[in-house]
């Protein structure tokens, strides 16, 4: 999805259908006004205090006990849920990619259709399922099994993250797995590789672009969420997203909120750079 521009090295400019300046102007103006300038505003607010004087205080504020705890917890939870998404999604994508029948409608059924139920409600429904006297525990008690008490704990937040972001992992994985030429896999078998060897040395390396793109697509929203932690973590567990959200909507301290967002952006950019290194050909098509 990203870096879609450098696929063909020797691309020449395409056809100019209409007046080029007139065609470029609307999006250029729009992108400047609503993408570039707003981002610069975050840096402006983040690097100044209430009087407008330059300061690094808002960025350094991340080191205070409360903020750094929120950041580390967010990093920990988002890394765990990204790993879980990958573990759950890879076998699924392989199963779907192997079946020769058109899987498009099945994927729509599993992952796209749920999006039409409001995502806040879907996440809230997990409260009903996970509560002490909720659906899952009623079933477990009925079966005389030990009950599951994870609501309002970090474990519930991880579950919410995996639930919400699993599609973002499956779709790029599926795309990259279906692109693998079956002849390459067959060649590996013909040359005497067993199933494990074929997977480790042929299939998995060829699916790396999908893996990378899936990791980016899951990690960024998981790291920055404030909704899932709010709905499933009780209001006691604060992630960095919650802290920033509160600075903007409750404390109205835009400078501090922007300063913390700058820290968050550093992690997002870091993630993009890391994935850029692994995803050299820009093949990781997501969505």
């Amino acid at each position: 999805m990203h870096k879609g521009t450098n696929k063909k090295p020797a691309e020449t400019p395409g056809i100019v259908y209409f007046n080029q300046t007139l065609m470029t102007a609307p999006y250029l103006v729009w992108a400047l006004a609503f993408i570039i300038i707003p981002l610069l505003m975050i840096f402006y607010y983040g690097l100044t205090d209430k009087t407008g004087a330059f300061t690094l205080e808002n960025v350094i504020a991340i080191t205070t006990a409360q903020h750094s705890k929120a950041l580390w917890l967010a990093l920990l939870l988002s890394l765990i849920s990204t790993a879980l998404c990958l573990l759950l999604a890879y076998p699924l994508a392989m199963i779907l990619a192997k079946r020769s029948v058109s899987q498009q409608s099945f994927i729509v059924l599993i992952f796209i259709l749920p999006m039409w139920m409001n995502f806040l409600l879907r996440t809230l429904a997990w409260q009903t399922l996970l509560e002490k006297t909720g659906v899952i525990n009623s079933v477990l008690t009925f079966l005389h099994l030990p009950t599951l008490n994870i609501i309002n704990t970090p474990a519930a937040i991880i579950l919410g993250m995996v639930y919400n972001f699993l599609p973002f992992m499956v779709l790029p994985l599926y795309n990259s797995l279906t692109k693998i030429d079956p002849n390459v896999v067959n060649a590996a078998y013909d040359l005497g590789a067993n199933g494990t060897q074929t997977f480790l040395r042929v299939i998995f390396p060829l699916s790396i672009p999908g893996v990378i793109s899936g990791i980016t697509m899951v990690f960024v929203p998981a790291l920055t969420t404030f909704v899932i932690s709010n709905l499933l973590g009780g209001s006691k567990i604060l992630l960095i997203g919650n802290v920033i959200e509160q600075e903007f909507t409750q404390a109205s301290n835009w400078n501090l909120g922007s300063g913390l967002s700058i820290v968050l952006m550093i992690f997002i950019i870091l993630n993009m750079v890391l994935t850029g290194i692994f995803d050299k050909n820009g093949e990781g098509t997501a969505l």
Binding site: M1, N6, P38, I42, G241, G257, I268
Partner: peptide, 25 residues
């Protein structure tokens, strides 16, 4: 390439950052 990178910003950036950047604007 420049235009496509700008286009990718709202997709790769965190929604919360996009949201507050527009709010500040």
């Amino acid at each position: 390439a420049v235009f496509m990178s700008v286009t990718n910003i709202p997709m790769l950036n965190a929604e919360i950052v996009t949201g507050i950047s527009l709010m500040l604007l």
